[in-house]
Computed example of a mutant assay.
Amino acid sequence: MKKIALYLVLLAGAVVSVAPYLMTLNSAFKQPAQVLTTPAWDPALPVTLENIAQVWTEYDMAHFLMNSLIYAGLVTLGQVVFSTMAAYAFGRMSFPGRDVLFWGYLATMMVPQIVTLVPLFLIMREFGLIDSYLGLILPTAFGTPYGIFLVRQYFRTIPKDVELAARIDGAGTWTVLTRVVLPLSRPILATLATITFITTWNTLLWPLIITNSDATRVVTLGISALKGQYSSQYHLILAAAALALLPLIAIFLLFQRHIVRSIALTGLK
């Protein structure tokens, strides 16, 4: 009975979590009149692709998706590289003030993002990076406290004997990291890459502040632009949201096995 009750609770939580995504995908294929006149769970009959075609052609959603792909892809690459190096230094190397520096850096997670937006904008303006890809990418491309903490916790689960054996064979620090530690850390790196990509893809506030032209605007801004001050074309908003959702679903399904394994091994569950 306890197991039945547990699974019922988990099933209810899964339904609540997945329902908005299913409703978005279903409504994206409805006729414009049906979006507001029928319940969200009613199937899209007849199915229409006009909403997606209109968003794709008239509102240049392909360009916004490409901007988001460049933005999220480069930020993810930077975070995986630099977070890995910082996590190895904090987790496997010894140097004066290591723990104080790590916990001080980790404490910056308590600072709300809104507090740093204005200073970041002023810095980007001084470097002439307003409305550019570099202005979008640089603030988060060199690692985040969460990413470094996540990878560091995983590195600490790797037995020290493995690293010591490599050093006895003459391996240096860089060789140990790239040829011993990283091959054993693929699950956590896949997890970090997935979380970073999804978080960056969904970011709205920083792209809204740093960009001011369609040349660099990302998909979240493209979707928000479909909502007018006095009226909104909900069928187009839902179609654009469905297009933005599909890449995230594909990435999660591709890496879900690594995510579950890394969370179990790091004890973060």
Results as ranks from 00 to 15, higher is better:
173 T>S: 15
85 M>W: 11
76 T>E: 05
237 I>L: 13
194 T>C: 09
251 I>C: 05
11 L>R: 02
173 T>C: 13
243 L>A: 09
108 T>Q: 09
162 V>D: 09
94 S>K: 15
117 L>F: 15
226 L>N: 03
188 I>H: 00
100 V>F: 08
41 W>T: 08
155 F>W: 09
249 I>P: 01
140 T>S: 14
155 F>N: 04
252 F>Q: 05
122 L>T: 10
50 E>S: 14
3 K>Q: 14
93 M>C: 11
79 Q>C: 09
22 L>R: 02
221 L>K: 03
145 P>M: 12
154 Y>S: 01
211 T>Q: 04
84 T>H: 06
161 D>V: 12
69 L>I: 03
174 W>C: 13
255 F>C: 12
214 D>S: 14
184 L>S: 14
206 W>E: 01
54 Q>S: 12
189 L>K: 06
79 Q>N: 12
174 W>A: 15
13 G>N: 12
247 P>I: 05
92 R>W: 08
73 G>V: 06
131 D>A: 09
262 S>I: 05
233 Q>G: 07
5 A>G: 10
86 A>S: 11
211 T>H: 04
156 R>P: 08
7 Y>W: 12
105 Y>M: 14
114 I>V: 15
150 L>S: 03
238 L>I: 10
161 D>T: 15
228 G>Y: 10
104 G>C: 04
10 L>R: 05
149 F>W: 13
90 F>C: 03
150 L>P: 01
212 N>C: 06
71 Y>M: 11
264 A>H: 10
140 T>I: 10
155 F>P: 06
202 N>G: 08
86 A>G: 07
128 G>A: 05
87 A>F: 02
81 V>H: 08
6 L>I: 12
73 G>H: 07
92 R>A: 09
2 K>D: 13
160 K>L: 15
150 L>N: 02
137 I>Q: 05
174 W>S: 13
256 Q>I: 14
161 D>K: 08
168 I>F: 13
112 P>K: 05
192 L>V: 05
119 P>Y: 07
17 S>Q: 13
89 A>M: 12
191 T>K: 00
193 A>Q: 03
124 M>S: 12
1 M>A: 14
47 V>R: 00
128 G>L: 05
175 T>P: 04
15 V>G: 01
121 F>L: 10
208 L>F: 12
33 A>D: 09
31 Q>H: 10
19 A>T: 08
14 A>N: 06
142 F>A: 10
193 A>D: 09
200 T>Y: 09
245 L>D: 07
137 I>T: 09
217 R>L: 00
46 P>D: 00
167 R>D: 08
57 T>Q: 11
98 R>T: 12
110 M>K: 11
168 I>Q: 10
230 Y>E: 13
144 T>K: 14
